[in-house]
C-alpha cells in the first residue's frame, strides 16, 4: 500500500498549485458557458446537449490532463525532490502508481464536479429525456481524461530533457487531438496511390485505425448509451472490432501503454 502515501503527497502538493486552480475555474466557465450557449447552437434536447458538450470535452479536457501530468515526475526528478520521495521505502513502481492516482484525482474531482453541474443545467434547460445515461457520459469523460493523464505521466517518466517533455506534450496534443484525422487520411491516400475515392469509402481496417484516436473512442463509448449523431461511422454495417468494447480497450491502452514504456525507461535510469 506504499503508493497510497505517494498519491496522498502528490495530490496535496499538486492541488495547491495556483495555475491548476486557474484551469479549474476556466473549466467551469467553459462547461457552464456551453450549457447556456447550447440553446443557440443546436437542437434543444438533452442528448443533443450531451453530444455538444462531449465535443467541448473532447478538445478541452486533454489540455488539462496533459498540463496536470506532463511535469509530474520530471519536475521532481530535476529539482531533487524525487531523492527525498524515494529515500523512503517505496519502489519506483509505487511512485508511478502513486503519481498516476494523485494526478488522476486532481483532474477528475473538478472535472466531474463541473460536468455534473453542467448536467444539472442541461436538465433544467433542455429537459429530462435521456438523462439516465448521464452517468455513462461522466464515466466515459473520466476515462477519456485519464487516457491523456497516462500519456502525460508516461512522457514525464521517460526522460529528463525538459525540451523533449514540452515537445512531447505539445506534439501529443496536436497529433492525438488535432492531426490524427489528417494522418489517417494521408496514410490511406499513400496506400491507395492517391485515389481520393478511398476517403469516402474507407476500408474496414481503417475504421479501427481511426478509432485509435482517443476522442473517437470516447465518442464511440458515448454512442453506446446515447442516441446521438456522434461516431456514426462505427455503427450499422461494420466489423465487430469497432464495437464499444474496443473503444474501452483503446482508452485503457492509452493509459497503460505510455505508462509502461515510460516506466521501463525510468526503472533502469540513474536518478
Amino acid at each position: 500500500m506504499s503508493w497510497r502515501a505517494l498519491a496522498y503527497k502528490d495530490l496535496h502538493d499538486a492541488s495547491r498549485s495556483r495555475t491548476l486552480w486557474l484551469l479549474v475555474a476556466l473549466l467551469i466557465v467553459v462547461f457552464g458557458g456551453y450549457t447556456v450557449g447550447h440553446g443557440y447552437l443546436g437542437e434543444e434536447t438533452f442528448p443533443a446537449f450531451v453530444a455538444g458538450l462531449a465535443g467541448v470535452v473532447g478538445v478541452f479536457l486533454p489540455v488539462l490532463s496533459l498540463l496536470i501530468g506532463y511535469k509530474s515526475v520530471v519536475h521532481e526528478r530535476t529539482s531533487g525532490s524525487l531523492h527525498l520521495t524515494l529515500s523512503f521505502p517505496h519502489s519506483r513502481s509505487d511512485l508511478v502508481v502513486g503519481t498516476l492516482v494523485g494526478r488522476s484525482l486532481v483532474l477528475l474531482a473538478p472535472t466531474l464536479l463541473a460536468l455534473a453541474l453542467a448536467g444539472v443545467g442541461g436538465v433544467v434547460l433542455y429537459g429530462t429525456e435521456g438523462t439516465v445515461a448521464y452517468p455513462l457520459f461522466l464515466a466515459a469523460s473520466a476515462l477519456y481524461g485519464l487516457a491523456f493523464v497516462g500519456v502525460a505521466v508516461g512522457l514525464s517518466l521517460s526522460t529528463t530533457a525538459d525540451r523533449w517533455i514540452t515537445f512531447g506534450a505539445l506534439g501529443g496534443y496536436l497529433l492525438l487531438v488535432q492531426l490524427w484525422d489528417n494522418l489517417h487520411s494521408l496514410t490511406l491516400l499513400v496506400l491507395h496511390r492517391f485515389e481520393f475515392a478511398v476517403l469516402t469509402d474507407i476500408p474496414d481496417w481503417a475504421l479501427l485505425f481511426r478509432l485509435i484516436k482517443p476522442s473517437e473512442s470516447y465518442y464511440r463509448l458515448l454512442r453506446a448509451g446515447f442516441d446521438v449523431s456522434l461516431a456514426g461511422r462505427y455503427v450499422g454495417d461494420v466489423p465487430v472490432y469497432v464495437g464499444w468494447w474496443m473503444a474501452l480497450v483503446i482508452l485503457v491502452g492509452w493509459i497503460a501503454v505510455p505508462l509502461a514504456v515510460g516506466y521501463r525507461r525510468f526503472r533502469a535510469a540513474d536518478l
Binding site: 496522498y8 496535496h12 502538493d13 529539482s79 531533487g80 525532490s81 517505496h90
Partner: peptide, 22 residues
C-alpha cells in the same frame, strides 16, 4: 540525501507527515 529539494507546496508538518505515512 544529497541534492534533495523539499516538496514545492507542502508545509514542514506535511513533510513529516509524509515520512510518517511512508
Amino acid at each position: 540525501p544529497e541534492g534533495y529539494s523539499t516538496f514545492d507546496r507542502l508545509t514542514g508538518r506535511q513533510h513529516v507527515e509524509y515520512a510518517i505515512r511512508s
